[in-house]
Design a protein around this nucleic acid. Structure first.
Lengths: 230, 230
DNA sequence: GCGGTACTGGACTGATGAGTTCATCCGCAA
DNA sequence: TTGCGGATGAACTCATCAGTCCAGTACCGC
């Protein structure tokens, strides 16, 4: 959606041209995911996509514009990947299934590469304001999938009314990103599992015991004593 | 300490030479922290450190060796920075103070740059196995500071006996790293605050309410509303 | 089928980066 | 004092990378 030709207002695109452009962006996204943005040269992209210099500069003003499209693409990919898993989320059980899927995926590549958005953010956030805002928005969209699911849990009565879905979603996202980062450094998905279990326990603690509780795990009554001072 | 001249077994170093070498590493560490490893050229380092090409290659075989030293330095810096805050940690109160310090530091730079180790890991873990293992070890050392503190809480009876300090420490580290990453993307330390509050709540849930609790806690709340909550 | 515009191939440029070479300088010890 | 090995400065090579140019081809609308 929203093809977005940011700065360079390219004229019309024929079907063929749009396809070539898409091939370049897609190839660049793959390459930059596995080797990083800075380590990926335009020549790499050109060779891997079977195109040429003139195509590259016909469709993009410069590398930064291509990177912008890559950011956009990766956000869409992540959302497209996560949406089916989270769209119907409305229970702790569903969250646990999501957790299992994410951990399994990470384990299969031994933590390598980390999160597409997380990696891009770490590499670009301080150097490209447009990329940073795009990624920030992307994270928000992703978090909304969590928050919406938590909201549904609330409606069902499985989650306490006074729980804050947005804050819980933010915490879950942080645990996910941190877990992925540690898993990448340690080449071990266990770190991700531990991080996500922490986040899930934090949510579970705001759950009403009466409701469906599949796992008879030991209590996670996260009693919160006092407000941290300033 | 532990000068460590990894691969290139440089001959002896005079006091002067050691100083120059140290200046190069220190400058490189600063630059690579704020602009990233890949974006920092040796010429940048040479200019900023007021040295020359010949010094650079007199003390380091190539860029990757310098990067190795930078990784080493950043780990030492982080530990040196965190140790005073965590060495005596033995209570929730202490953890909360640590949280406040970390959040305040992050807020002062609006999330920029993230964690020195986290950024390096994201940039290097997939491309340099030596860097990856060094960073993995660095994270472990850092986590040990947490785990040791949690162990002291256990001895004091403030933390449940069946709680697992190592797992709680790993979760806390993941929350920290994820929170820093999101804070960097959103230019907003609140994400870090939320993430750390989640981790602290998770630990607090394994705390024995009866035990020494310095602060006259007012009744249970639920979530921890922090300073300038979002 | 005709004109124009999108599309493509490929050679070229200029800058920058990593790494090299070499002559010289300096400090220390016998 | 002399000499050796470490320390330094500066010019140089070579590869790569972003970005340009131009000529030629394919395609779309009329």
């Amino acid at each position: 959606m929203a093809s977005a030709q940011s700065t360079t207002s390219k004229r019309r695109l024929t079907a063929k041209g749009a396809l070539t452009r898409e091939r370049i962006v897609s190839t660049a996204s793959d390459l930059m995911y596995v080797q990083g943005v800075e380590r990926t040269s335009l020549d790499d992209v050109i060779e891997a996509s079977g195109t040429g210099k003139s195509q590259m500069y016909h469709y993009f003003a410069d590398k930064s514009e291509l990177v912008g499209e890559v950011v956009h693409t990766q956000i869409e990919r992540v959302i497209a990947n996560q949406d089916p898993l989270l769209r119907r989320l409305d229970s702790m059980r569903g969250l646990e299934r999501w957790r299992d899927a994410v951990v399994a995926g990470n384990r299969s590549r031994r933590g390598a590469h980390g999160c597409p958005l997380g990696s891009l953010s770490s590499e670009l956030a301080d150097y490209s304001e447009p990329a940073r805002t795009a990624l920030s928005t992307g994270f928000d969209a992703w978090e909304s999938l969590f928050a919406d699911g938590l909201g549904r849990m609330q409606e069902k009565g499985e989650l306490d009314d006074d729980a804050d879905p947005a804050a819980l979603a933010r915490g879950l996202m942080a645990a996910l990103q941190g877990g992925l980062l540690l898993a990448q450094a340690k080449r071990d998905a266990d770190s991700l599992a531990i991080a996500l279990d922490m986040a899930l326990a934090h949510i579970r603690a705001r759950t009403t015991p009466s409701a469906s509780r599949p796992r008879a795990s030991r209590s996670d009554g996260e009693n919160v004593p006092d407000t941290t001072d300033h």
